[in-house]
Design a protein around this nucleic acid. Sequence first.
DNA 1: CGAGAAGATGACCGGGGGGTCATGTTGTGC
DNA 2: GCACAACATGACCCCCCGGTCATCTTCTCG
Lengths: 218, 218
Amino acid sequence: MSGRTAAVQARADSVRNRRLLLRAATEAFAECGVDVSMHTIAQRAGVAKGTVFRHFPTKDDLLAAIMMQLLDRLFETADRLLRADDAGRALKDFMGHGIGLLAADRAFCDVIGKPSLQHADVREAIDRLCDTVEDLTARAREQGAVRGDITGTDIVLLLGGIHQTARPLLDREPQAWERFLEIAFDGLRARGRPALPHPPPAQLRMADPSGVSAPTKT
Amino acid sequence: MSGRTAAVQARADSVRNRRLLLRAATEAFAECGVDVSMHTIAQRAGVAKGTVFRHFPTKDDLLAAIMMQLLDRLFETADRLLRADDAGRALKDFMGHGIGLLAADRAFCDVIGKPSLQHADVREAIDRLCDTVEDLTARAREQGAVRGDITGTDIVLLLGGIHQTARPLLDREPQAWERFLEIAFDGLRARGRPALPHPPPAQLRMADPSGVSAPTKT
DNA sequence: CGAGAAGATGACCGGGGGGTCATGTTGTGC
DNA sequence: GCACAACATGACCCCCCGGTCATCTTCTCG
């Protein structure tokens, strides 16, 4: 380890291409969703297809690298809002943030939507995020901002649902989700209403329980 | 036209295969969504791929034929509920019906989700359905069952959204959507709340305004 | 500047999609 | 029962996907 630069020095054009690639992939995934082709991404980055696979062995690796950025940013937001005074406001702000991300990135919707075929990193990041949302929700519940039988999993699920509600309007009215977030949040308050007809959903766990991440020493 | 049977008599095995095909396609689309392959559908029907294309020139034709069945049934339900006394209850029942259909048929979700690349029949059927939902909603609004600034388009959009909310739980808890329908409906009531932050969405029109269906004589 | 290694390239592969068509098969009217 | 039209079949076409690799280019270090 020779101080600043690592032992193996990356070539200048390599790091340049990697940057171009990440930028192009971020944009392409956001616009087109996970089904955008590697060829398209390569074109938008101005490199050949082989170069993409040199930097990211599989499409999943590339997708995971980009999703991790999004998830990390969202996690930071959630973690910061955990320190807010008004827990109800914080929860609603977080939901707005999450829905905004979903509206701006089709690939993010796709990844959140189907838990299959994803990198372990991504799955764990989602789980961490869910944990933080659970805390956010618990605080809102204690402060009476939402009814007592609402869980963090409800909130996580509602993120995708509210975005989906406003999705057909995305082109013409990009802010329409605010309307449906308000409706949903009014439903979450709903003081004096009878108990909800279905029990609270079990917590979503993306990382499979086979002990991939947490070595339980068995 | 020679009474019961048409001038050109269809062969017995042909109508048999057509029936098998429609059954298989209905099931396959419901289970796998619109991306299920024509080969798969042919296999499940017990016929060769060419036979599928003999009965339905393109995949879109087959999909449209099956979606029309669903839409017609849903339209009948909506039309019947229009005659109910309790308009709020009727609206909620209709939403439950629609969400149940979405939960049971992946292709239905896909078709409703993306308005592009669809048959004109399907688009018109969806528009007709939207009109009826508008009526259902107007009655509920007049009876005070939902707040005054809720439109039929809100309801249509919420159908997809509520289903999407419960979708990750579909395998383990197929009825979970009831919970989120209750939350959303509480939000739709929400007496004494401030006005919603975003104006009511414009009515969704699937049939393009180029005058394909309604000859506006221009 | 020269040598060598790291990187970039795009033709190529196997798989799977929707759709076609020459050929073989079968139901039907006379 | 015969002849013919309607029908069924599956090999085939073209396209696009993710991924590979022999070949060529370019950066870097001495």
